[in-house]
Structures are given as C-alpha cells and as structure tokens.
Design a protein around this nucleic acid. Structure first.
Ligand code: MN
Ligand code: MN
Ligand code: ZN
Ligand code: ZN
Lengths: 154, 154
DNA sequence: ATCTATATAGTATTTATTATTATATAATAA
DNA sequence: TTATTATATAATAATAAATACTATATAGAT
C-alpha cells in the first residue's frame, strides 16, 4: 500500500482516539495490500506469519473498527462469512456462487454515481438516509464453470 | 399471493420431482406474501401459528430449496443472517445499517438491465459467467436516523 | 518513570446454519 | 383402497463464524 494511504488511515485512527499497535498496523497493511478480499480467518492466518501470538479476536475487533471508520468494506457472500476489502473506492464485485471467489468490477465512477443517484430518487417507499451503495454480479468463476459440470447447469 | 404465482411454483416443484407438503406450501405462501424480507427464524415463527410442530430445519431446507429453484432470493445483511425475498423480480434493496430493516427499491427494469450489461462488458479481469446481479443501498432507516443520534453521526 | 486507559491473548459463549436419524407422509402403482 | 417406496419432517446433535469475558500487556500521556 502507498505511504499516503497508510498515513491517511493512521491519522484517522489517532484523531478518533484509538491507539496504534503493531498488530493493528499489520492488519491494515494485510487487508489493504490483498487483492483477494480475505475473510477474518484468512487475515488471521496471514498476520500469524509476523505475529504468531495474535488472537483471532484481535483480528475481528480491528477489522470491524476499520469498517466503522469506513477504511475497509465488508462483503457478504454465500457460504455465510464476511469478507473484507481494503479498496474502499467505488467498485463492484463479481462473486462465484460455487467457491465464493470475489473479483473486482471496475466501473466508471461518475457514471456509476449518476446512475445510482438518479435511480434512487423518488423510488424509496420510506425515508431512508442512504450513504453508500454497492453492486454485485453473481455467477461462476471460470474454474468452477469448467471444472464442475454439476454446478454449471441451471 | 396470486393463484397463478402459487401454481407456477407448485408446478416447478413437481417437475423437479419434489413432493408437495402442507408445510412446504405454507412456507411458500409466507415468504411470498411477506413484504418484510424475513429471516429463516421469522418464517419459522410465522409458520408455527398454523403448524406448531414444524421444525426450524424444515424451514431452512425449504427456503434453500426454493432458492435453488430461483423462486426466492437470498439477501445478506449486516448482523450476519440471511433474509429471504419472495419477490424474485429485478429490484434493489435499501438496508438499514443499524437495525437491518430492508425495503425494496423499484428500478425501471430495462434501464437496470441495460446499465448492468453495458457496465460488466470488458470490465472483468477474469472470465466469470454471470447469471444474476443485485444492488444494495446502505444507510439508516428513518426510525434509526431520528431515534438514535449516536448511529447517525459519520 | 509512572500512570491510566485501551488493546491484546486466551478462553468461553452465543447464534445461525447444517448434519444426522428415526418416523411420518406424499406420490405412485397394484 | 391398500401397499410400496422414496422423500419430507421433527427432534436433536454438531459445526463454524462471530462475539463476550477477563486478566495481562502496552500505547500514549504526564
Ligand atoms: Mn474489491
Ligand atoms: Mn425485495
Ligand atoms: Zn468458483
Ligand atoms: Zn433502522
């Protein structure tokens, strides 16, 4: 991850009165550098390489804290577990319904924003206060599509 | 729910070789008539009114079977539980990040399809086989926005 | 260097979901 | 209608993700 991105997160953490621990910094780096949208368990396995005594609880606490600061995004998948995305820029996800693999779908940001803001206007039956939106594409990754004929039939 | 919608689901169930039980029919009716996007536990509480001996397992099995037949849609929310939508037509959801309440966002279908199909073209870094897509709007419902000042600050 | 509040590690608990198994029942055919 | 058979159900046990608890450690401040 870039230094400026790390500094940005660090200063937000300090501004909010949280303290900076080595585990916390490492979790930020792992989730920000990963392109695989890892689960908490996967972040835990990764951080154990540098901090063997870290607890899973610490990973969960830090990921949900970063999420509350909007510095990571949570992604819900089938196989009910939460995955984390260190890329908080506006983009979509394609999710494999068989193995859960998540890849990014880059979408032209102004188009995306315009579409959503136009679409939501006057279409809510209740007065919701929207501050974020997301889009997911569901299907099969190429591996699952070719490897397992059973799952590719509809 | 309309008779024709029920018949449509019933005939698909028969065509796929599944049998028709009173519990199954009642679950279909409950999830199809509900506008609240209930969880499995909520469907369970509802069906107990008419079938007090029903088991939660039966509810789960039927909901996931209906999902595999594409006659209900699954919605993942925060507070890690799955919710079910008997309206399988193309529409979005606005989800309250505080209480989990889900409401529909009706979007002009041709627009929606066109946008998504245009956007996905050539933008996937891998060869995914997409067969479905969804959009969610995250924020606060009016109740949570006004009632709990703590959650409405960003 | 000391103090204090927060973070962490280790463990226990909760909760949603799935698996197991014996019984009941829907579908089919005699 | 009755008998047969395969699937569905109810009841229970097991799994796995996430959260709660608590004593110790440590970051940040004095
Ligand atoms: Mn992403
Ligand atoms: Mn809906
Ligand atoms: Zn896959
Ligand atoms: Zn709410």
């Amino acid at each position: 991850m870039t230094d400026s991105r790390l500094n940005q997160i660090v200063s937000k953490i300090k501004k909010m009165g949280y303290s900076l621990t080595p585990q916390r910094v490492e979790i930020i780096k792992i989730v920000s550098e990963s392109k695989s949208h890892p689960s908490a368990a996967e972040v835990y396995n990764k951080i154990k390489e540098s901090y063997p005594m870290v607890s899973l609880n610490t990973v969960y606490k830090n990921l949900s804290m970063l999420s509350s600061l909007h510095e990571v995004k949570e992604i819900k998948t089938m196989q009910n577990s939460v995955h984390y995305d260190g890329d908080v820029s506006l983009h979509g996800h394609a999710i494999c319904e068989n193995c859960g693999k998540i890849i990014d779908v880059q979408i032209n940001e102004p188009d995306f924003k315009k579409f959503f803001e136009n679409k939501i206007k006057g279409r809510l039956t209740e007065n919701y206060h929207i501050n974020n939106y997301g889009v997911e594409f569901y299907g099969l990754c190429d591996y699952c599509y070719t490897a397992d004929p059973a799952v590719s039939e509809t």
